[in-house]
């Protein structure tokens, strides 16, 4: 292990922050972890852009143009990129909209629900533009490791990070691997 702390960044794309919560669930081990790693951009630190990092943990799938910008920034800056959680790996629950026509989604959200934007579809460039379908992140950038689960158990996070820190190929025990 190098004397420099390992730099880790995390983000949530089309996800629910559940994976982040689970990461925090490693409880008191988090303090041990903080001895070894420093967090770059994460929803936990408020750093807005990802700088050069050793490990990037990405939660959530890709459902709009902004997700792609963030994901590409992560890929560019992280030596190792990990897809974390069902949404990042299969599209997850957000992908349930993949069988619904995008037109119908918009109608349901903006035109049937009276009041919102006065029944009009907003066209503000600030709003991320959605894709036809939600995709897992490995269909957009190259991913090095996967951590399945919805969310992945805290133990699985711990195993992945400690394996990476120790230069081992990450390997989960049977009980740590699940898709739900």
């Amino acid at each position: 292990m190098s004397d420099r702390k390992i730099r880790v960044a995390t983000c949530s794309l089309a996800g629910c922050f559940g994976c982040h919560m689970s990461l925090l669930d490693i409880d008191e081990r988090l303090f041990g972890l903080l001895e070894l790693v420093e967090f770059n951009r994460t929803p936990l630190t408020d750093i807005k852009h990802c700088g050069p990092c050793d490990v990037g943990l990405v939660e959530g799938g890709v459902c709009n143009a902004e997700n792609v910008h963030v994901l590409k920034e992560f890929r560019k800056n992280c030596k190792i990129l990990v897809a974390v959680g069902a949404c990042a790996i299969t599209g997850g629950l957000p992908a349930m909209r993949n069988n619904i026509d995008l037109w119908d989604c918009f109608q349901e959200v903006y035109q049937y629900e009276g009041g919102l934007e006065g029944g009009k579809v907003p066209n503000d460039p600030e709003l991320p533009l959605p894709f036809d379908k939600v995709h897992p992140i490995y269909e957009v950038v190259k991913i090095d490791y996967f951590l399945p689960g919805c969310p992945p158990p805290a133990d699985a996070f711990w195993r992945l990070l400690t394996d990476l820190l120790n230069g081992r190929e990450p390997k989960l025990d049977y009980e740590m691997l699940h898709y739900d």
């Binding site: 918009f106 907003p122 036809d132």
Partner: peptide
């Protein structure tokens, strides 16, 4: 993104 561009 084409569909969404059309809609918006």
């Amino acid at each position: 993104l084409e569909t969404a561009r059309k809609i918006t």
